[in-house]
Each structure stands twice: as C-alpha cells, then as structure tokens.
Amino acid sequence: MYSHLLVTVAYEGEHDAARSLQVARALAAPGAKVTLIHVMEPAPLFTLDYLPENWREDMHRAITADLGGLAAGFEDGHAVVVEGDPAHEVLDYAQENGVDCIVIASHRPGTHRLMLGSTAAKIVGRALCAVHVARRAD
C-alpha cells in the first residue's frame, strides 16, 4: 500500500482514466494522498494563428475542473495541471512531492508504440519510485 500516489490522466482520444483510478484505489493505503496530474504539451507553433485567443487558459480551466471532479472521489484527492514534456513533468513532480507510486495508463502497443519512446516507457525507465502500468481491460 502506498501513501502518496500520482495518477497520470491524459485527455486524448483513446485514453480513459477509469482503469488508472481503479488501480490507484486498490494500491492506496488508508488516508493516502492521491494526486491526479495532467501535462499540457505545448501547441505546435504553426497552429497558434488558428487557435482562439484564450485557448490555453480555457483548456487549463476545463481540465482542472474535470480533474478536480475525479480527485474528489478520493479521501485526500488533489488535481494538478502542468505544462511541458509529459514524462519529464511527471517524474519531476513525483520526486519533488514525495510520491511513492506513479500510476500510468498504457495501451496494447501497435507498430508505432513498439519503440521505447512512449511516455509510459520513459517513466518506467527513469522513476525513482514504484510505477504501476495500468493496462486497458479489453
């Protein structure tokens, strides 16, 4: 059982946080702190002229609200939205905040995921704490 879990939540097509949240509940010690984190990646420069003026702030606000709702399902749940490279930001947050287990979703690899470039592979390879990779249940 872990006392501070960091659960990554991605807001992209096939990603679903349900499995990761289920795993976090199973691994959390009574009264554990559970932090849900989403990392917003920088938009490609060529897209900036096509996006509404406050798109980043609006997206940040919407993701924070959604994460907060998910975090409310835990006794000591918290939501964090940061910006940057996902693997780097998750690893930094974990180290700086005393996280003892990172829960990250992974999917069955297709040909584009066979290389060790995925966020999950980077986190597994570099984390200084335990990492639980939550597979989709299908």
Rank of each mutant, 00 (worst) to 15 (best):
S3C: 04
L5S: 07
L6R: 13
V7E: 06
V7A: 13
T8F: 02
T8L: 12
T8I: 02
V9L: 09
V9R: 07
A10Y: 00
Y11K: 14
Y11Q: 06
E12T: 12
H15S: 06
A17V: 09
A17E: 15
A18D: 14
S20V: 07
V23I: 10
R25W: 05
R25K: 13
A26K: 08
A26Y: 02
A26D: 09
L27H: 00
L27V: 07
A28E: 03
P30D: 07
A32R: 05
K33A: 13
V34N: 06
T35N: 14
L36S: 09
I37Q: 13
V39D: 11
M40H: 05
E41K: 12
P42K: 11
P42N: 11
P44V: 06
P44I: 08
L45N: 05
L45T: 06
L45H: 06
F46D: 07
F46N: 03
L48K: 08
L51K: 07
L51S: 08
L51N: 10
P52N: 00
P52R: 02
P52A: 03
E53R: 13
R56D: 04
M59V: 08
H60M: 09
H60N: 11
R61T: 13
A62M: 09
T64K: 14
T64G: 15
D66A: 11
L67H: 11
G68F: 05
G68D: 13
G68Y: 05
G68M: 07
A72L: 04
F74Y: 12
E75K: 10
E75W: 03
G77S: 11
A79S: 14
A79K: 13
A79R: 11
V80R: 15
E83R: 09
E83D: 14
G84V: 06
D85N: 15
P86S: 09
A87L: 07
A87C: 09
H88K: 14
E89G: 01
D92Q: 12
D92P: 00
D92M: 14
Y93P: 09
A94H: 08
A94N: 10
E96V: 02
E96F: 05
G98A: 15
V99I: 09
C101F: 04
I102D: 10
V103M: 04
I104W: 13
I104T: 04
A105K: 02
A105R: 10
A105F: 00
H107V: 00
R108D: 03
P109E: 00
G110P: 01
G110Y: 02
T111S: 02
R113M: 12
L114Y: 03
M115K: 07
L116F: 01
G117W: 00
G117M: 03
T119K: 04
T119C: 02
A120T: 11
G125N: 12
R126F: 04
A127G: 08
L128E: 15
L128V: 05
C129K: 04
V131C: 11
H132D: 07
H132I: 00
V133E: 09
R135C: 02
R136N: 01
R136Y: 01
A137H: 12
D138M: 02
